[in-house]
Design a protein around this nucleic acid. Structure first.
Lengths: 253, 253
DNA sequence: CGGTCAGTTGATGCCCATCAAAACCTGTGG
DNA sequence: CCACAGGTTTTGATGGGCATCAACTGACCG
């Protein structure tokens, strides 16, 4: 991942960066870039898709953060979060309707890919089809890891895990920032993601601060030593299927 | 779903039954059936794929139950369970290696689909390609629902949710049994799935028994009134994307 | 009839939800 | 520049859920 990718492909240059993107040729990258018919800017908390709606475009997150949330009995549960480069609702192409909402956290910029263009790709480039598929399966892999962590970890390490994962994923798409990252995530969002109350999230964050593992302040997360944070969170990045993993040497085809 | 499907397609007749299967034509069903190069019988607890292994076949569960598990620090965590008709590791085709194990619970019969045959389908029938994709996205949808339930529900309703889901999924593939279902699931498996200890699982099961919601005995789960069980578990089947949902009327293409 | 494994029960302490309230930011308009 | 309002972060007190350690029962099997 380098800046050239973003110059050449300003809307989709981060898509699967650090993962299978390196297996794509120029023509394929160009074709993905041309998928994006339109870009939009989202306001804080704006929801682009509501659970149950059918859709005929898919959305790539270009800049900012987003959450997938499910409402139940008036409570919001966040099932996953997204960083730039994520095709946040590619699965909508195959599912036709979604079981959850997708909303911006802070302001965000998105690109829209009409499904008929994706259908063209499915019919003419099986390798790209498989790449899109791969992208949606990464979400499933992250869901699985999170299920394990929810069963295994208490509040503070859960939060540490979220922070460690965001940090790693930002790295993969070329937005790494040693020492932490800027984010509009609120304690409310962290609580909704970890399945705990805001109040308890606050105490757990305080604990991380006291342990000098992570400092969450408005708009910024400081991480003095990511290795220590990852150890505390029992974070093992294999499930992100990154390039750097020795196990991921074999590629498309 | 009816018995004719299983007579005509003994190995894959339950695949996506109750969901998009009804959108397939005879040629497509035949093509899926012919994917299965070989069948095998698995012993109790036998693991067919270990985390990290690459693979060049995918597996459909023909008879019995299976679990996806992730080991961490000697503890087994189950991230999902499977019923007949599930293509348990179709995602292995696009991911190449898996982040988890897949193992039988009790004895099970599976069918093996070589990846080169799947690749042929990807290249020649985009509708079937999309169907396979859809199948893997169902897993992701179930993962999301489970993440919400882990955040929202305590032990007893979690277990109730598992039981309700199994019951519904058996219905969809034509194995419904009003009053409950036979299963080799042990309390250990339920505990590993719910992220609780066996001891606490036992107490929660006792509670379900006392509430007359479900009776889990060796090899059998009795459900006197599924509606009541589902209400207690806050089970809402939309995430299973079943045919019966009004929202699912639109199909492939 | 002893061994093994699944299921069951009791006692203790920590984690987290809940109710309540205060301190703090941030943007707004006077 | 200050006052104010609304949302975010912080702290305290109380109770319930679950993990943990320990022990016992019952079923199946050689």
């Amino acid at each position: 991942m380098n800046d050239v990718e973003i110059q050449d492909y300003p809307k989709t240059g981060r898509f699967l960066a650090g993962r299978l993107r390196s297996a794509l040729d120029v023509g394929q990258k160009q074709r993905i870039e041309e998928l994006i018919a339109e870009t939009r800017t989202l306001a804080n908390d704006e929801t682009i898709i509501h659970a149950g709606e059918t859709c005929d475009v898919s959305t790539i997150l270009i800049e900012g953060f987003m959450l997938r949330t499910i409402e139940e009995e008036g409570e919001r549960h966040a099932v996953s979060f997204h960083v730039p480069g994520d095709f946040v609702d590619m699965h909508c192409f195959a599912l036709k309707r979604l079981d959850h909402n997708i909303q911006a956290v802070g302001t965000a910029t998105i690109g829209l890919a009409p499904h008929d263009k994706i259908r063209d790709i499915m019919a003419t480039d099986p390798d790209l089809a498989r790449l899109f598929w791969f992208g949606t399966l990464l979400d499933a892999a992250m869901h699985r890891e999170w299920i394990v962590k929810l069963g295994k970890l208490r509040a503070a390490p859960r939060i540490a895990h979220i922070l460690a994962e965001i940090s790693r994923r930002l790295d993969m798409v070329g937005l790494g920032d040693s020492g932490g990252f800027d984010t509009p995530l609120r304690q409310r969002d962290i609580a909704d993601t970890c399945g705990i109350t805001v109040i308890h999230a606050n105490r757990a964050i305080k604990k991380l601060r006291e342990l000098d593992l992570a400092d969450v302040v408005r708009g910024r997360v400081n991480i003095p030593d990511r290795k220590r944070l990852e150890a505390y969170a029992k974070f093992h990045p294999q499930y992100l299927y990154g390039d750097s993993s020795e196990l991921m040497r074999d590629r498309l085809g």
